[in-house]
Write a protein that binds this DNA or RNA. Structure first.
Lengths: 141, 141
DNA sequence: CTTGACTCTAGACTATAGTCTAAGGTTTAA
DNA sequence: TTAAACCTTAGACTATAGTCTAGAGTCAAG
């Protein structure tokens, strides 16, 4: 039933599925964000399908302001040889970071939502006082 | 009553209040993220106190994964000479971006919260199946 | 059985966002 | 009034995260 079980997931296929460049994948491998893949006899990298998920996770974590180093820490929660107690501590710290980010984004959202709802849609900007809030203190400083 | 109304907010004072370097401030000015400040007779930059708020906003937006260019767009919602209709459109697009970021962060939070609550706190990582979820699809792909 | 698309490595190059240095002028506090 | 601590510019340098190039080998279709 399985058509083409033999279709190898080469770096190019993985890259196009994840929407990144092949160089990016090799770069992530070198930086430890992707495990060293198996190779064909001729040296081609062969990936498992869930590498795409991993790449998606990296892409999204990056968009949320995490550095590759921080993302590495998050990913190591999975395959570290460490103890669960370490994972718990790292998870707790990351959780705090994430909650702060969520709160900041919500503050920004509140301001932008008011901006969207209250401004009349024409006339000059300077007449719209809500905009002021954007450069003000957004709650937690 | 006002002690030291004459205390000038020089670049160094603004920098230390906002927790950034003086070079960063000059860099932001050059990139249009800060308005060109007034100068003393001798050429020193003098800032208004709310520059600190603006710098805080920039710092936090950066931590949320916005580039300086995107932050510039957000800040321009305030002092553009454009029409409100533009502001509305930009605000709407930024709002969508922000909502996606919030959702992604919530997905990450869910995983990390389970990680924190369910793992027993000792033993080997590989025994903790929740960790798997971290590199999996987090909802919206 | 060759041609074009793909892969390999190593190293150079780019963009973004600062950070540092040099060489000088200004302010302030002892 | 002078030394420390600030400020000025311009330009060089750094870190992060890729992106591109060269020169070579491999794979799949015609």
């Amino acid at each position: 039933m399985n058509k083409r079980v033999d279709e190898k997931l080469t770096i190019g296929r993985i890259a196009s599925q994840a929407g990144v460049g092949v160089d990016t994948i090799r770069f992530y491998e070198q930086r430890g964000l992707l495990p060293t893949p198996n190779r064909t006899a001729s040296g081609y990298r062969i990936y498992s399908p869930n590498t795409v998920n991993r790449l998606n996770f990296i892409r999204r974590a990056k968009a949320l302001g995490f550095s590759l180093e921080e993302i590495s820490t998050l990913l190591e929660l999975q395959n570290t040889g460490g103890k669960k107690i370490d994972v718990k501590n790292i998870a707790k710290r990351k959780l705090e970071q994430i909650n702060i980010k969520i709160n900041d984004l919500k503050s920004m959202r509140d301001v932008l939502q008011i901006l969207d709802q209250e401004c009349s849609g024409d006339g000059d900007i300077s007449a719209c006082p809500i905009i002021e809030a954007l450069s003000q203190d957004m709650g937690r400083n």
